[in-house]
């Protein structure tokens, strides 16, 4: 069986494009890592898209919101496993990171809101709130603006998995 980075994802049947494992503490040591990683990965996975530049810009924006969310809400120690898969025009981003039950609850709640029928109203409420935006705003935007299908999964090893499935090409073409 090929290593996950060379074949299909361990958690989906989709072919894997890229996988990175890094220490959550290292990742969260500098805010700019979200921007750098999203830009780098977007460039890596965009070369064979219909319009590589438009796609990379959109992909980077979506991925950055996921990474910024994890940067803000995650468990103290452990590994952040980041992988991207693609089947035709469907891109799947999978982030596995340390999370206790409380943190898992935050994500479960945010994903439920992003998938809810009134997600757009919830997004506007969160966006125009008086206070600093909560950690769920990025996920809400992904659901509303990017049509992302979000899901979570609990792992036995004290980590959780956040999955976003995106279809970024074709909307503006």
């Amino acid at each position: 069986m090929p290593a996950p980075a060379e074949g299909v994802s361990a958690k989906s049947d989709m072919p894997q494009l890229l996988q990175m494992d890094l220490d959550i503490g290292d990742f969260c040591s500098d805010w700019s890592h979200c921007d750098l990683m999203s830009g780098y990965v977007a460039r890596m996975v965009s070369h064979n898209r219909l319009d590589s530049v438009l796609f990379a810009n959109l992909y980077s924006s979506a991925l950055n919101e996921l990474l910024e969310t994890v940067f803000r809400v995650h468990g103290q120690t452990g590994t952040l496993q980041f992988s991207v898969q693609r089947q035709d025009n469907l891109d799947r981003v999978e982030l596995v990171f340390p999370a206790d039950d409380a943190i898992y609850g935050v994500y479960k709640d945010a994903v439920a809101k992003a998938s809810h029928d009134n997600a757009e109203t919830l997004y506007l409420e969160a966006l125009f709130a008086e206070t600093e935006p909560g950690p769920g705003l990025g996920l809400l935007e992904l659901g509303v603006d990017y049509g992302a299908r979000l899901s979570t999964d609990r792992h036995d090893d004290g980590r959780m998995c956040l999955i976003a499935e995106l279809s970024l090409e074709g909307e503006k073409e």
């Binding site: 924006s61 950055n64 919101e65 910024e68 966006l127 125009f128 600093e132 935006p133």
Partner: peptide
């Protein structure tokens, strides 16, 4: 403006409103 996250958008959108 090539990239913008939700923190920035929240700040700008609220200011404009």
């Amino acid at each position: 403006l090539v990239r913008m996250n939700n923190v920035a958008f929240h700040a700008l959108a609220c200011k404009i409103l």
